[in-house]
């Protein structure tokens, strides 16, 4: 059989190492075979040389975790090459939904009363109050347009960058990731401005003016969604 040799794997050298463009229309087997072949040809004879980072660009191909592992192992066996990143244009529907849930801002209009728990995966925008004994939990940030008098837990799955913002900040407890802070036992004087809570460099929850967030958490600006 006269096999028309087609380029499935294109190798490019950049200052960050090698970039491998893998064709996304051929079969996976063909791809692996050619990868194996190409890398064997290009193998340098310096086994002690520095590790060269390899970036894979697989285009519109979806690699299962097993396939990814196979390619990683294959490349790793070529002496001083190591896979640093695999970039694909496609993700599974499941991953996409998880990503959507984690990054979307869920807006809820209600009063979270004593004994009630409001739990969202992404950011929470609450149009209403959290009364004493009520709890709001979010995987991301919490923004409360009303008064926070209960418990707020932002970054529930371990995101210390998360913040809690409220028009009236009078919480029973604030929690960000695994850090907790409670209201002082003495009565603080009435302050009538919006405030935010964040984790500072000493791993403490700090409550401060809302305007500071612009500098502290610039990533809160999300004009467009991205992965």
């Amino acid at each position: 059989m006269n096999r028309q040799k087609q380029q499935y794997v294109t190798i490019k050298g950049t200052k960050d190492g090698l970039t491998l463009h893998l064709d996304d229309t051929c079969s996976y087997r063909d791809l692996v075979m050619e990868l194996e072949e190409k890398l064997s040809v290009n193998q340098t004879n310096e086994p002690d040389g520095p590790l060269v980072a390899v970036h894979l660009k697989v285009g519109n191909r979806y690699l299962t975790p097993e396939q990814e592992e196979e390619i990683r192992t294959l490349i790793r066996t070529k002496k001083n090459l190591v896979v640093e990143s695999i970039e694909s244009n496609v993700i599974t529907k499941e991953e996409a939904l998880i990503w959507k849930r984690e990054t979307e801002i869920v807006s809820v209009s209600k009063i979270v009363r004593s004994g009630q728990i409001l739990h969202v995966q992404g950011d929470l925008l609450l149009i209403g109050d959290v009364n004493p004994g009520g709890t709001v939990i979010a995987g991301g940030n919490i923004f409360i347009l009303g008064a926070l008098r209960g418990i707020a837990h932002a970054g529930y799955y371990g995101n210390k960058e998360a913040v809690i913002v409220a028009s009236v900040m009078k919480p029973m407890q604030l929690r960000i990731s695994d850090i907790m802070n409670r209201a002082p036992d003495y009565k603080a004087e009435e302050r009538n401005e919006m405030e935010c809570a964040y984790v500072d460099d000493n791993n403490q929850i700090v409550v401060d003016r809302l305007q500071l967030l612009t500098h502290l958490r610039p990533h809160l600006t999300r004009l467009e969604r991205r992965l």
């Binding site: 004593s114 004994g115 009630q116 009364n131 004493p132 004994g133 009520g134």
Partner: peptide, 12 residues
């Protein structure tokens, strides 16, 4: 008032 808040939540 706290308990009233709880009961209002249930009634809603």
């Amino acid at each position: 008032v706290r308990d009233a808040d709880r009961i209002i939540g249930l009634l809603e």
